[in-house]
Write a protein that binds this DNA or RNA. Structure first.
Lengths: 237, 237
DNA sequence: TAGCTCAGTTGGTTAGAGCAGCTGACTCTT
DNA sequence: AAGAGTCAGCTGCTCTAACCAACTGAGCTA
């Protein structure tokens, strides 16, 4: 029945063609419209909030959510953390997911990135190099995120870009929570520049190779150069 | 504060290394351990349930969820439905997401699918052909789903497979809800067999081409044969 | 006019009561 | 003794009612 309440609220949004940010009925109004108690309404809204479908602002009201794929980050991240602590190589799997998808996409991107984006990417790599040279401990995560986000913007599919960003966020969140990753700023910069130049040149194979090398580098830094089946043994000896 | 309760329950799962299916404390126990009311506990659990982190069984107990990516289907599907009714080409974007990812993955799959999976795929295509020849109205969705799931199993990354299945499910759910898609069973069969044979032969380019054609066919049936930028104009004239 | 205060609206939290589904042990029948 | 039916108990589910906390905006004050 709780499920039913969620469905009815979703139906309300769909049927009323409510856009993101539109205000939903207040809790008392929903109580009356749906014929259930405040408690049930709130539980349904909490679930919808967790799915990013509605947004709740204390003292202000309830609104239609931004319809982003951001909520799936939390689920993915939790799954990965839980798996990691149970001895699975879930972090590596998440990285492989990113690698597989980005490797597949980079080819169709080669030579098709708009000039404006290329300029922005140039600026981002320059910033990376500045950060790498600085004493702040290497390239900031935000810069790396921006590079990947800008790179795939050229695909012209908003959903695709969001999903890729979600994967990046989940990976980054888990990585910083779990493991202390040594960074080699110079290598990171060089690889990003190579990706950019490969894409600019329009050479799909070169771009693919550049992406693969980049991810290979991250994988090495994760400390799992060998398949998971063998990685534990070394600790037993 | 509600957010805090969720975090503490997640922390409990992580710290106790609870595996999927393990039972969580009962609601009264959580009330005491977290020092909050029953209602707050329940709202937190509802949110975690929506994210697939816990599973609640009436009259039985609360358990650690299956850690699958299934919950993101609902969010994706809702987003797509809402976008569709607001006149966006969200369904096409979802299809393109699948196409982009699968096109990228099929290349690395060529020639590397285990013999057992190939046999299973053969059987699935055979079933498709039987369904296409029958009077039941074409290929069953479940058969198509099984084909794609089995195909990418060979990648050896469970997470990746789950994500692809989630995309498939979301697309299928929305498509059946929104539009009446004409099906040409014979073409569908032929394209799946071509994908299979291409992968078996180890010819990466041929496999990629086969996948692209398959998705091109679906896109055509969706009634959006031209890029989104131009698709609206034709209606204005 | 600028700033403050306060009342009203909205969501957040608590409390207590009773309902509903499931399990497992107990009892009655065969 | 074996089986089926029953019931007590746990579990989560829903409701009611009251109060707390955050935000807005109108009205008051300086």
């Amino acid at each position: 029945m709780a499920r039913d309440i969620q469905e009815r609220i979703k139906k309300l949004i769909i049927d009323s063609r409510l856009p993101s940010g539109a205000s939903l009925p207040t809790e008392p109004e929903l109580m009356e419209r749906l014929g259930v108690s405040r408690n049930s309404v709130r539980e349904a809204l909490k679930a919808l909030q967790a799915m990013g479908i509605v947004e709740i602002r204390h003292g202000f009201g309830t609104y239609v959510g931004p319809m982003s794929v951001a909520p799936m980050i939390e689920g993915l991240a939790f799954r990965t953390v839980a798996g990691h602590y149970r001895g699975e190589d879930s972090l590596l799997q998440l990285l492989e997911l990113r690698e597989a998808v980005e490797t597949g996409l980079i080819a169709r991107l080669a030579g098709r990135v708009p000039e404006a984006d290329l300029a922005e990417l140039d600026a981002l790599v320059a910033r990376m190099e500045a950060e790498a040279a600085g004493a702040e401990g290497g390239v900031r995560a935000e810069t790396d995120r921006a590079f990947h986000a800008t790179l795939y913007r050229g695909l012209g599919n908003l959903l695709l870009g969001e999903v890729l960003e979600a994967f990046w966020d989940a990976f980054h969140k888990v990585r910083t929570d779990l493991v202390d990753v040594p960074q080699d700023p110079k290598v990171t910069c060089r690889q990003h520049r190579e990706i950019l130049e490969a894409v600019r040149s329009g050479d799909a194979l070169r771009a693919e190779q550049a992406i693969r090398e980049h991810f290979g580098n991250i994988r090495t830094r994760l400390g799992t150069p060998v398949p998971a089946e063998h990685s534990h043994r070394s600790y037993d000896r």
